[in-house]
């Protein structure tokens, strides 16, 4: 861990302004990911801006009938919220499928969206990694790739986004609210929030320097039956090989997003139009253009089978 300076911000705008002022500054909330990365010098911020005191820890109902989730709402609290459990159950289920009780007590809504990949080569600073050091190369290509992306990757990076929560947020059409350094705010649809790696895998979101997430908003309830099916090598406390977030309506229509397969939550509105026809046509479109490795090609049939199981369960 490199020495760093630290401040507590008094308001979201002040936090954003402070971050823009100091090159190499990072926000810290739960710290469940950032601190680990700092210890390994994968992240080396010169300055930390603690946003825990900003009061962004409430869940409010919106005029449209949705929920506005403060950026600092802890994963445990979000999963347990009665309105989330009743109206957005896929989110609660995804959260509870992730991490451990102790981690969920600390981890925040915004931090969860911003957590970084678990690619083992990202974690070993002796290895080339374009995400960690731009232009150094990708050791995962041609290396151990069982956990890594089958779709959406590039010749520069095949890392996956590890979040479960973000997959549910994607299927719920959440929007991300931010404040920029001079106080301007904007709203980013979750679909646009994470970027694909392309030639610049080190840039993972559309956030601008200093821009701070203040809330994540869910639209009015989507109805239907909510499923989160996480497939992994052990029964708990493991990242997804494949996860399926699905909302299935009584007429068989619905929405689906995948985790564990791509650099971001993976959803295609065109593909899910085929949901009444079953998992196969949905996956044919959703995973079109997939470029799996020999080690992770099993994720393609696995994703289809997991969705088929969800659809069968929804039918009852």
């Amino acid at each position: 861990m490199k020495p760093f300076t630290y401040e507590r911000a008094a308001s979201p705008t002040e936090a954003a302004t402070a971050a823009a002022r100091q090159p190499g500054a990072r926000f810290i909330a739960g710290g469940t990911n950032l601190l680990d990365l700092m210890k390994l010098q994968i992240e080396t911020p010169a300055h930390l801006i603690d946003v825990n005191g900003l009061g962004l820890d409430r869940i409010e109902e919106t005029q449209e009938g949705g929920l506005r989730i403060g950026a600092l709402v802890r994963n445990t609290d979000l999963a347990a919220d009665a309105r989330v459990r009743r109206d957005h159950a896929v989110l609660s289920r995804a959260l509870l499928a992730g991490a451990s009780g102790q981690l969920r007590n600390r981890a925040t809504t915004a931090g969860n969206l911003l957590q970084r990949t678990r690619c083992p080569y990202f974690y070993d600073t002796n290895m080339a990694c374009n995400k960690r050091r731009s232009g150094s190369g990708c050791s995962a290509l041609g290396g151990y790739s069982r956990q890594l992306a089958v779709v959406g990757g590039s010749d520069a990076c095949i890392a996956t986004h590890p979040s479960d929560m973000a997959v549910a947020m994607r299927v719920l059409d959440a929007t991300v609210e931010t404040v920029k350094p001079q106080g301007a705010t904007r709203t980013i649809p979750i679909a646009d929030f994470h970027r694909l790696p392309g030639d610049t895998p080190e840039i993972e979101t559309v956030l601008e320097p200093g821009e701070l997430i203040t809330a994540v908003t869910l639209p009015k309830p989507a109805g239907g039956a909510h499923h989160y099916r996480k497939v992994r090598d052990r029964a708990s406390y493991a990242f997804a090989l494949v996860s399926v977030a699905a909302i299935v309506q009584p007429d068989g229509s619905g929405r689906v997003a995948l985790g564990g397969v791509a650099p971001k939550p993976w959803r295609s509105e065109e593909a899910e139009a085929d949901m009444p026809r079953g998992a196969r046509p949905v996956m044919a479109k959703l995973l079109a253009g997939a470029k799996p490795t020999e080690e992770n090609k099993f994720k393609l049939p696995l994703a289809e089978r997991a969705l088929a199981a969800v659809l069968a369960e929804a039918k009852g």
């Binding site: 083992p120 080569y121 974690y123 050791s139 151990y144 052990r234 029964a235 708990s236 406390y237």
Partner: peptide
Amino acid sequence: ALMEDLVVDKRHGFFVNHDLASYEVPVHAD
């Protein structure tokens, strides 16, 4: 039987999954 596997990177000559997040051992739920 089910999960423990030190994965060899045959190019660089090391066990890639060198932490407890990636070298999985059974948890209580297993």
